[in-house]
Design a protein around this nucleic acid. Structure first.
Length: 417
DNA sequence: TCTGGGGTCCTAGGACCC
DNA sequence: TCTGGGGTCCTAGGACCC
């Protein structure tokens, strides 16, 4: 059997840990640059505010209901997530961390599913402060569906589906909510007369495979109760991306280059932390696609290396050369980013026959930089090309304190002393 | 005025091999 | 006019996820 443990309105719940005054009050969390609404409390969902909606379209409505608005605080959310996952792991060693707010666990059949789920739910609320929903079923896809019912159709946030009860479960889950059915497939299925989860479950999996491919064959088998998707281990990323929308539209090359240098710094740091080297680099820029009045331009360039690297300085240099090739004067750039591609493990690097371009001292330098930044805080030391002011950095005007990861932002219990 | 930032997998088709 | 029968690897694009 599988269980899916999913945090309720995760980012909002993280904010509420330290703001108990906001429980049962409308709360939203915004994307980078304070652009879109990416997490909503139940009160806000009930107002009809959709996921991913631009803030400016709903600001009046939110203000009318005295909604508390937060910029995103990823350091906080990542730390809370880490604590929850560690706690779950104590109860269920066979575990897959599926996303920042979801984990699958697998266990042998037992008789006390409900007691087990209730205990887990209670302990996570008590120790961490985050409410979760738990769905239990014979396959991962069905556990996802059970979690949907747990969240929406139950009062205790737990739903258990045994093998014989699959039809009863699927009757409560719209096809659009089935894991793996996106907007496109929903349309395609609809044209084939498949409009409900049960319709899809009852189709012959071979015919589904012929028409839609092996992905959807597995999906149908999973809906029938036959497990095809195993728990997966955390794999090193195959590519690492870093990009941002700017707080204003950038015109000058040097500002764009400064932003790109920062993206390289972020991406290479991630690559080093998973002991990966990049064999390729992509750089892209684009103007504001929503501002149809100003001329539009977007471009992308990539380069592959003979010698894999994760050296920040080296990659900043290359990225700047690439940026020169796609930068055009006269445009107003709103977004840019980089991707490290073809990542391979350090130990798998094939060295060149001819002298390596990356002498050993660079490796020591990289380690030193990472160590200092680890101890002293992000960007305690950085490359000059990353700039000092970074005025282009996305807005985050309503970010809460990073209560659990920054000494100077600790939760203040009493300020009298 | 204001519109996020990441990822994965699969398939079809072309280039190339013997 | 006639023109084999296998393979592999790579890439672009399309689908999905949070």
């Amino acid at each position: 059997m599988y269980a899916l443990i999913d945090c309720n309105n995760f980012y909002v719940s993280c904010e509420r840990i330290f703001r108990s005054d906001l429980i049962n009050k409308p709360v939203v969390v915004l994307s980078n640059n304070d652009g879109c609404i990416i997490a909503r409390s139940n009160e806000v969902k009930q107002l009809g505010v959709p996921m991913g909606a631009p803030l400016f379209q709903y600001r009046t409505l939110l203000e009318k209901y005295h909604t508390t608005i937060f910029s995103s605080n990823y350091q906080l959310y990542a730390d809370i997530s880490r604590r929850i996952m560690m706690l779950i792991k104590q109860y269920a060693p066979c575990m897959e961390v599926y996303s920042i707010d979801e984990a699958f666990i697998q266990f042998e059949s037992r008789t006390d599913y409900f007691a087990f789920a209730s205990h887990l739910k209670k302990i996570i609320k008590q120790w961490i402060g985050v409410p979760v929903s738990i769905g239990i079923a014979p396959t991962k896809t069905l556990a996802k569906a059970a979690n949907y019912v747990a969240k929406n159709n139950t009062s205790n946030g737990i739903y258990i589906c045994l093998s014989k009860q699959i039809s009863l479960l699927l009757k409560q889950v719209p096809l659009s909510e089935i894991w793996g059915v996106g907007r496109n497939m929903l349309e395609q299925f609809k044209r084939a007369g498949i409009t409900t989860s049960l319709n899809l479950q009852q189709r012959c999996s071979h015919q589904i495979q012929k028409k839609y491919g092996v992905v959807y064959q597995k999906l149908v088998m999973e809906l029938k109760g036959q497990s095809f998707l195993p728990l997966e281990n955390i794999q090193p990323k195959q590519k690492i991306m870093s990009s941002r929308s700017f707080s204003y539209e950038i015109i000058h090359f040097h500002e764009l280059a400064e932003a790109i240098a920062n993206f390289i710094s972020t991406a290479t740091k991630k690559a080093r932390s998973q002991k990966s080297m990049a064999t390729g680099l992509q750089v892209f820029v684009r103007t504001n696609r929503f501002n149809q009045k100003s001329p539009q331009y977007r471009n992308f360039i990539e380069m592959n290396f003979d010698t894999p690297t994760n050296d920040t300085g080296h990659l900043i240099h290359i990225a700047k050369q690439l940026l020169k090739q796609i930068y055009r004067e006269g445009y107003r750039y709103k977004k840019a980013g980089v991707s490290l591609t073809g990542l391979i493990h350090e130990s798998a690097v094939q060295h060149q026959l001819l002298p390596c371009i990356m002498p050993a001292p660079r490796k020591r330098l990289r380690q030193l930089l990472d160590n200092i930044n680890q101890k002293q805080g992000r960007n305690a030391v950085y490359f000059a090309s990353q700039g000092n002011h970074r005025t282009w950095m996305p807005n985050c005007n309503c970010r809460s304190p990073r209560y659990t990861t920054q000494w100077n932002e600790l939760y203040l219990v009493d300020a009298t002393y």
